[in-house]
């Protein structure tokens, strides 16, 4: 189990992120939780790319190399994650402008009030 510690850490991060995302009432914390959740998955990929005694996948140097494919996937995924975060934060700004709070319960209460 110990030699697979990074996998356990990745799963722990996924769990922590998901718990914050679901449980925290503060919308900013939810977005932070989402980021932790995603990076946990990134850790899983990058761990899978590591190779005993390997080096960065630069073919000009001598091998063996780490696996370039998961690294590329995670490069893409990081950019996707930032894009999602940016949109989420833009939504937060708009919600705050509208309701003056970023606590989900308070926003919901405000929406209910507006409906009546």
């Amino acid at each position: 189990m110990l030699e697979r510690l990074p996998y356990l850490a990745a799963i722990a991060l996924v769990g922590i992120g998901l718990a914050v995302l679901v449980d925290d009432e503060h919308l900013v914390k939810k977005v932070l939780g989402l980021n932790v959740f995603q990076t946990g998955i990134f850790l899983f990929f990058v761990t899978a790319a590591a190779r005993e005694g390997g080096s960065a996948p630069n073919v000009a140097k001598a091998g063996p190399y780490a696996n370039p494919l998961p690294q590329v996937l995670i490069l893409t995924a990081i950019v996707v994650g930032v894009s999602v975060t940016a949109v989420a934060l833009a939504l937060l700004v708009r919600i705050h402008a509208e309701y003056g709070t970023l606590r989900e319960d308070a926003v919901r209460a405000a929406i209910e009030e507006g409906r009546e």
Binding site: N35, V46, A49, G54, I74, I78, V82
Partner: peptide, 21 residues
């Protein structure tokens, strides 16, 4: 973990841009 490109992106984008946002 021998992923310098990912590290660079993470430092710049993850720690930098996201935190700034």
């Amino acid at each position: 973990f021998d992923a310098p490109d990912v590290a660079l992106t993470e430092a710049a984008v993850g720690a930098g841009v996201v935190t700034a946002l």
